[in-house]
């Protein structure tokens, strides 16, 4: 990449989600630059899915994601530990159930 290249700045940013082999949900893998959806998909394939990491790919324009802000930290994520009834710790796991 030479210093005079400004390609990265003129291309949209896309978030890449990969589904690992063996099922499971799509997970965020990273992001790529691309001019449109098809090229984003191809770039995602070349950057994130070339070594058997994925059986399916999603690309989403980064500006289409609505994200929480650092200011939301308190109102969104403080778990309210004083409200004990939110945490189902009082139940006894029946015998025979090993994984819960």
């Amino acid at each position: 990449m030479s210093a005079s290249d400004s390609g990265s700045t003129s291309h949209k940013l896309w978030e890449v989600f990969t589904q690992p082999p063996g099922g499971g949900p799509h997970e965020h893998a990273g992001s790529v630059h691309a001019a449109d959806a098809e090229m984003a998909l191809q770039n995602a394939r070349d950057v994130y899915a070339r070594r058997n990491e994925a059986v399916s790919l999603w690309v989403v324009p980064s500006d289409q994601i609505t994200a929480s802000t650092p200011e939301d930290m308190g109102p969104f994520f403080e778990p309210g530990n004083d409200k004990a009834y939110r945490h189902p710790q009082f139940y006894k796991v029946p015998q025979g159930v090993r994984v819960f």
């Binding site: 990449m1 030479s2 290249d5 390609g7 990265s8 291309h11 790529v32 630059h33 691309a34 191809q42 770039n43 070349d46 950057v47 070339r50």
Partner: peptide, 14 residues
């Protein structure tokens, strides 16, 4: 190392 953008650099070398 000379691709127009990083992603295409990787695509071409792939």
């Amino acid at each position: 190392g000379h691709g127009p953008i990083l992603e295409e650099d990787i695509a071409l070398t792939n």
